[in-house]
Simulated scan of single mutants.
Amino acid sequence: MSSPVQSQSPLSMIADAGLPGLLIRELPARGILNLRGQTEQKVFTEAVSSMVALELPGPNASAVNDKLTVLGLAPDEWLLLTAAGDQADLAADLRTAFGSTFAAVTDVSSGYATLEISGAGARELLARGCSIDLHPRVFGTGRCVQTLLAKAGVILMYADDRPVFEVMVRRSLADYLWRWLHDAARDVGFARAGA
């Protein structure tokens, strides 16, 4: 009998970076579903609302409950973030609820790594490689956006007012982005922890 496939982080060889006023760390793996559908179809919106217990947010907004985060990527596209391992059942339940309605749900969990950037220096660091206005009046809690960070395509979410940002990046670019963030942190005047 073969052993189950074990998920491994693309950053397993790199330690978290603690810098004064700033913490960069990789978040544990989670379930990620890409959801496509048309909000004009009542069957679609009712099926999603009944399964996730949240209203679908518009583009560049998020909705959160104790089990799930929904990121609005486009008028007809969302990411559903769940606990690792919960995505398969949720995807199956959604497909059943959709019936013959035009909609799609795809497990993309293995395609992303998520970095958390927190602390007083988080905005300044992200601004070094991102053209999005990150001021709290514009990009506050509950906001998300698809953008470029240091030329890497990312999904950036403002998770809470401490401040805490989450950066979802393709696994193949995770090591590059981690190293860029660490170097940029030094460039903006942060010293390495313990230095």
Results as ranks from 00 to 15, higher is better:
32 I>A: 02
33 L>P: 02
30 R>L: 11
118 S>F: 03
113 A>G: 04
49 S>Q: 15
68 L>Q: 14
92 A>C: 05
180 W>S: 01
89 D>N: 13
5 V>W: 09
35 L>Q: 03
56 L>K: 05
116 E>V: 06
136 P>V: 04
38 Q>D: 14
159 A>M: 14
104 A>N: 13
32 I>Q: 02
107 D>V: 06
110 S>W: 09
178 W>E: 00
152 A>V: 14
138 V>F: 11
49 S>F: 12
146 Q>K: 15
38 Q>L: 11
108 V>A: 11
19 L>G: 01
121 G>M: 08
142 G>W: 06
20 P>G: 03
177 L>H: 04
123 R>A: 05
67 K>Q: 15
137 R>N: 13
156 L>R: 03
1 M>R: 14
122 A>Y: 04
70 V>N: 06
101 T>C: 12
36 R>H: 15
88 A>F: 10
98 F>H: 12
59 P>V: 09
187 D>R: 14
26 E>I: 02
163 P>K: 00
159 A>K: 09
41 Q>G: 05
78 W>G: 00
48 V>G: 04
120 A>Y: 10
172 S>E: 13
97 A>K: 14
93 D>Y: 10
23 L>Q: 11
78 W>C: 04
188 V>Q: 07
42 K>L: 15
54 L>S: 07
9 S>F: 01
12 S>R: 10
169 V>Y: 03
117 I>D: 00
96 T>L: 13
155 I>G: 01
89 D>G: 09
88 A>R: 13
34 N>C: 11
158 Y>C: 09
99 G>S: 10
18 G>Y: 07
170 R>V: 02
19 L>C: 07
16 D>S: 12
185 A>K: 04
81 L>T: 04
90 L>R: 03
150 A>G: 04
110 S>P: 02
128 R>Q: 08
128 R>H: 04
120 A>Q: 11
91 A>R: 07
80 L>F: 05
8 Q>I: 12
136 P>H: 08
172 S>A: 13
76 D>P: 09
76 D>C: 12
115 L>T: 02
7 S>W: 13
99 G>D: 08
69 T>R: 14
51 M>F: 00
101 T>W: 03
43 V>Y: 06
129 G>P: 06
134 L>D: 01
133 D>C: 10
42 K>T: 15
169 V>Q: 06
131 S>P: 03
156 L>C: 08
58 G>E: 10
144 C>W: 03
81 L>P: 02
82 T>N: 07
52 V>S: 08
40 E>H: 13
57 P>S: 15
188 V>D: 01
102 F>D: 14
75 P>Y: 11
132 I>G: 02
147 T>G: 01
107 D>A: 03
148 L>P: 07
176 Y>P: 00
77 E>I: 05
34 N>G: 13
15 A>P: 04
189 G>Q: 07
163 P>Y: 02
62 S>Q: 09
119 G>V: 05
76 D>K: 15
187 D>S: 08
111 G>R: 13
52 V>L: 15
145 V>C: 14
157 M>K: 05
50 S>I: 11
99 G>W: 11
181 L>C: 04
110 S>N: 12
108 V>H: 06
149 L>S: 00
119 G>W: 02
128 R>F: 01
41 Q>S: 11
123 R>V: 01
98 F>T: 04
144 C>Q: 01
48 V>Q: 05
52 V>I: 15
22 L>C: 05
159 A>D: 10
191 A>Q: 12
122 A>W: 01
46 E>Y: 09
66 D>A: 11
187 D>C: 04
181 L>E: 00
106 T>H: 12
191 A>I: 12
38 Q>I: 06
139 F>P: 03
